[in-house]
Design a protein around this nucleic acid. Sequence first.
DNA 1: TCAAAAACATACCGACTAGTATTTTTTATT
DNA 2: AATAAAAAATACTAGTCGGTATGTTTTTGA
Lengths: 200, 200
Amino acid sequence: MKQEQKSELTRQLILNESFNLFYKHGFKATSVDKIMNATNLTKGAFYHHYNSKKELGLAVISSNLQKRVVDGMITPLHQKGDALKLLEDIFSTRLKSFSLEEKQHGCPMNNLINEIADTEVAYQVALKAIIDKWTTALIELIERGKTENTIKKDISSKAVAIYLISAFEGVRGIRKLYDDDLILNQYISGLSFYLKQLRA
Amino acid sequence: MKQEQKSELTRQLILNESFNLFYKHGFKATSVDKIMNATNLTKGAFYHHYNSKKELGLAVISSNLQKRVVDGMITPLHQKGDALKLLEDIFSTRLKSFSLEEKQHGCPMNNLINEIADTEVAYQVALKAIIDKWTTALIELIERGKTENTIKKDISSKAVAIYLISAFEGVRGIRKLYDDDLILNQYISGLSFYLKQLRA
DNA sequence: TCAAAAACATACCGACTAGTATTTTTTATT
DNA sequence: AATAAAAAATACTAGTCGGTATGTTTTTGA
């Protein structure tokens, strides 16, 4: 195999195992040793491809984490159809589709935001980039709804976007405390009412 | 000084310094050594009063953390006056009143929820107790609004409570990513619209 | 084929971790 | 004042942490 390909493959392996371990045990609680143990490689390999754990954290955020949010929450926003219905579908369907593990461990992005965003500006910037992307896409869809006369024109698209994201990330944290989905159903019910009120 | 009083004073000192350090640097990143350094006492004193770091964590949650939420978000709910106005005041006023540090470091409870709630059932239970208290108090106020005909009767009080808490905790995390209050203003605007729609 | 470079392995470093064992100091009781 | 008990200090353990230095193996290009 070509050297470059092999390198890329190793980096991807490290990234994926890191993402999983960061998600399950948190960033600080996951050591480089544990990550490399999961890859069946050694520390020497790690520090050949990355200069520090911090650099790895940033790479996980801007590749794995970003892709996850884009695929799950942003790309679906570009579908055709009634804007409000789309919003309700995406936010509630995604929540319902989560595995038990994903419910217990919450949102990988929100976890990182709350664990490490206030320890390093670099983490802040990387995570902000994802939230900004998400916000922008939401605003676009809400604006479309306004031009199509399905969404009230006197509300702030950005305020709605922020409120939607906040509630979604918030409930994914709170769900960690419970061992059933009641709280998610309450959230969905609350979301549903909220979106209804936005209809023109 | 009486022995019992001194003991209690020391425990309080440890609890308060722990809360501050957990808040600023996270639970895992705060070692027992660092805590005891902040108290100007030694490790021997710590393990005389607490059996483990985990026990300390639980004590911080059910004393400092609980008190903070009760004082800041629950007790104010029992005031007289229009229920919806009360809700808007409490959720937005509190947000605006936060210091720069409190904006940068987010919500102490939400931080812990996202950092350690999925690592130990005991943490889950302790944190859940706070959220349940908060939810119950919110539901009571919303129910009062219904009986006073200021809040629509066909909405689920619990769903509204959960949605309010979720959005509040969510935005406190997201605010960490930014260095200004724009996001908070967007949230407040979103909240304001949401509450308006609940009015009977 | 051969040397340079890249990929990875091994062994190690000093700093830090939660927790323990033991001793000294302070307080309370008689 | 003597004694016991509580509070706190000191010194330590075995293990983990991120990171480095230096090997060995594999791949590459001439």
